[in-house]
Design a protein around this nucleic acid. Structure first.
Lengths: 236, 236
DNA sequence: CGGTGATTTGATTTTTCTCAATCCGGGTGG
DNA sequence: CCACCCGGATTGAGAAAAATCAAATCACCG
């Protein structure tokens, strides 16, 4: 078995990152930030807390969760290096949901007051925030479409391909990686029960598209997986 | 039968509007815009078109639709007076989805070049766009949660209450209004089939919570409807 | 080395979808 | 003026997808 360190758990990375809208460089030269480590399972912030900072994920994997007052909840995203967290809570004053580390992670904490004053000084930073948020809306709508129109297997395939693509953009393998989230968390994100996720993965394995050992994923036929994921024919 | 003109189809309104982030006043004094009328069924824009403008809904009702290349599609929102359309396509260069008028409507068209130059001059406008988008992310996540965790009846109840609330904020009745969208469009938004929407509405009527005649809705027991909509117990 | 949480698999139930038929109102043209 | 037509809405019956309930296995951790 591979040491997970050689997969997608590296702490630092050579190449700079360009998140949609806000580049790492723009952040670094525009605002002060503090490195902060969160160990697996710990909360970066919780729903309802006063919004004191936004966070740039520098390493690890963070899930964001939205819950209602009566106990219903959904995972709204899995965030890798290069993504910005809590930006959508600007204007709300408090965090809209929880952010939990799925593995030991590092974020750059950007205090709201610093961000606001920097944005006031630097129009390009304010504009970058707009671009960042608009990209976030577009990305989340794509998931809305996928989750709403695809069957269980197709949704799981889509998520695996998406994770692979994003990891690849970070310099990791697109076809061989370790899931940082449980089946239940995948299900919560894809609007499925954990058993359904398991069955979907099992079926993809039986069809020879994947090789799976618990959290370790090897995509054997990305082409076929991709075709499956976007086959309007077998929808739902 | 009431003349629909006395319900929620008024063209102009006395009180000013404050969309989350971008107020009507801020728009009016910051950028040039052109009034544009769209008749029922017409497209304001289509997916793939170059993003030349964003739109402030001044009257009527617009639906936005996201489609995939293989024919799957979802209604992503129903937009009333005070809402801003296409802002999420900033940074993409082209429209992400279609916008169709559900009734004769009026929008204020704000050319992208004007918006950009105005935002560059006026930091408060750029900041308002950020707030607008962050509010949009929050609102859409709430729907993600509702659609993902509630049963069919609860979803329909939630939508009716939401429409009532928004119409009330515009000076109309919160309990008596005319739906501008078909059952199929409601279903697309709530991730249900049109027959399921019909059945949910029928059942709510049988329980005495609603009075329904085709598109005309009268909410008889908003309290009970609201409790139904947020009962984690009977989820899904 | 037991225990705990995660995963897998199976059996059954529930919800919603799908297919089909009917109804209804508004508009059209004879 | 009225019969007809059409899209939307409603209702029913059966099918399918996923949820739920249950049990067994597995890996990791103390």
């Amino acid at each position: 078995m591979l040491a997970t360190r050689t997969l997608n758990s590296v702490r630092t990375l050579a190449q700079p990152l360009i998140a949609a809208g806000i580049s790492q460089e723009l952040l670094q030269r525009s605002v002060a930030f503090a490195r902060r480590r969160i160990s697996a399972g710990q909360a970066l912030y919780r729903a309802g807390q006063v919004l004191r900072a936004v966070y740039f994920v520098n390493a690890g994997c963070i899930k964001s969760v939205l819950a209602s007052s009566d106990g219903r909840e959904r995972v709204t995203g899995f965030h890798l290096r290069g993504e910005l967290l809590a930006l959508e809570s600007i204007g709300a004053g408090t965090h809209e949901g929880d952010a939990l580390a799925l593995e030991d992670s590092e974020v750059w904490e950007i205090a709201m007051c610093d961000l606001m004053s920097a944005a006031a000084r630097q129009p390009e930073l304010q504009a970058a925030m707009t671009l960042q948020l608009s990209a976030q809306v577009r990305a989340e709508r794509q998931w809305l479409l996928s989750v709403g129109t695809l069957g269980a297997e197709q949704r799981v395939a889509t998520l695996l391909l998406d994770l692979g693509r994003r990891l690849h953009a970070l310099g990791f393998s697109a076809t061989h990686f370790v899931l940082r989230m449980t089946r239940a968390e995948i299900g919560s994100f894809l609007n499925l029960q954990l058993e359904t996720v398991t069955r979907a993965i099992s079926h993809l394995r039986e069809r020879g598209l994947l090789d799976v050992t618990r959290r370790e994923i090897r995509i054997l036929d990305a082409q076929a997986l991709s075709e499956l994921a976007s086959s309007g024919a077998t929808a739902h």
